[in-house]
Amino acid sequence: MGNCFSCFKVPPPPNPSTNAPLEKDKEEIMEVRGMLQSSQDLRCSPLTVVESQINGNSKGAGVPSFVVGSDNCGSLHRDKTSRTFYPRIPPLGRASLGGGGESKGKEVSESKLNALFEQYRDSNEDSMLADGIERFCSDLGVSPDEFKVLVFAWQLNAEQMCRFSRSEFMNGCRAMRVDSIRNIQTRLPELVTEVSKDPEMFKDLYRFTFRFGLDAESGQRILPSDMAICLWRLVFTVREPPILPRWLFFLETHPHVRGIPRDTWNMFLNFAEAVGNDLSSYDDTEAWPSLFDDFVEFENDQMNQNISKDKDEIIKQDCE
């Protein structure tokens, strides 16, 4: 029943047909009264005896306890001078659970976000274009081609380069819980650290980078080779695989490679993890893109040429 008043209802008059059990109850009541009479000396003690069935909680006679008053249904206290009370403990809030309410940061101000976006919005459309993004980056103290800006665009889930729509900007900043230049300056280095330590976050950023580099207006589906090279250098600012410089050199010295499809882009991350810095572990029977086969063959040729050059140098030195 808890603290409900129904705990204290007066019992109905006894039924004559139940006289035998009632006589037994009277004997038990008299016995309890005798026990209470014999415990009068405990009233001077700091510990008090709590009556049974107070607030619906059964307490055995002689068990020391404290009674908590209730402000819900009005607990019944018959002898206030003989009992000790402590204040009712308030319920735990978010601030009591390890500061969880503050760990997420302050609430984002919609008006401040809109005002921030308006500073850099293009005069002809509801987006930040190249000029506005350049001014935005300047106020952040970063260069538009920095890794931090790529991370910011990833947080906005921007559809294409050199354009941040109002909805992308607002939704991304809400997710980051930032609404000012100073907030963004503080949050971006934290995100960079998180991405560098979390493989799953980096994988998501890596796959976003391919889409971000496409010309969405023209329906482009393949990254031009020069754009892919720039984006590979940019996205691997952190977590750079050992094979990357040799891979980019291969692309730069093979002009017939004009574009990078999405599958090749995505698979390169797996390829780089699989081969490490030693291409001897490369298995050409696996379903790698053919461009990787060409790269491994090129690397083997380069290695053989270097070995031949070393042998020629040794022979030349011996002849001298």
Score class of each variant (00 low, 15 high):
V195C: 07
M128W: 00
S39E: 14
A95V: 14
F236H: 14
F202H: 10
M303D: 13
E110D: 14
P14I: 08
N3T: 15
C4H: 15
V238I: 13
S143H: 12
R94H: 07
E118A: 15
T48L: 01
S38K: 13
I307P: 00
W288G: 01
K148Y: 13
V49W: 11
A274T: 06
F271G: 07
Q119W: 00
R174Y: 06
R182W: 00
I315D: 09
E51H: 07
Q155D: 11
E125H: 02
P224T: 02
A228K: 02
L279G: 07
S6A: 15
Q37T: 12
D283T: 06
D179G: 04
R94D: 08
R166V: 03
V238R: 06
I133E: 13
V192A: 11
Y86E: 03
A274D: 14
L223K: 03
E286H: 12
N124P: 00
G213F: 01
L113R: 07
S82K: 14
S70L: 04
A61R: 10
P144R: 10
F268E: 01
V108I: 00
D179N: 08
R78E: 10
E217A: 03
D293S: 10
T285Y: 03
D204F: 08
W232K: 03
A287W: 06
R221G: 01
P245V: 05
D284F: 00
K197Y: 08
L234M: 06
V192N: 06
Q119F: 00
M227C: 08
N157S: 11
K148D: 14
